[in-house]
């Protein structure tokens, strides 16, 4: 899994997330993503933890809703 920090993930639902941080936890890759406006010019102030899923060479992401994982990620991802 390559490092996607500081790159933009364009999703099939037309959302775009700027990858602020990338992390692995229990063998799974997660991103802290900052949503970007559709024109790519601004941040929306909308942040999500995204779980990276790779299947058949295709990459997908899923919004993390597991509270335990969110807690662990929030505690351990450092931005400063």
């Amino acid at each position: 899994m390559e490092n996607l920090t500081n790159q933009i993930l364009k999703l099939s639902n037309n959302k775009q997330y700027f990858v602020l941080r990338q992390a692995t936890y229990k063998g799974t890759t997660y991103f802290l993503g900052a949503e970007v406006t559709s024109d790519g010019e601004n941040f929306t102030n909308n942040f999500k933890f995204l779980e990276c899923i790779s299947e058949n060479g295709k990459m997908s992401v899923k919004i993390v809703t597991d509270p335990d994982i969110i807690e662990v990620l929030a505690k351990n991802i450092k931005l400063d």
Binding site: N6, K10, F18, G40, M59
Partner: peptide, 9 residues
């Protein structure tokens, strides 16, 4: 959700 593209900001 599938990642359709990865681009530079």
């Amino acid at each position: 959700v599938e990642v359709t593209n990865i681009v530079q900001p």
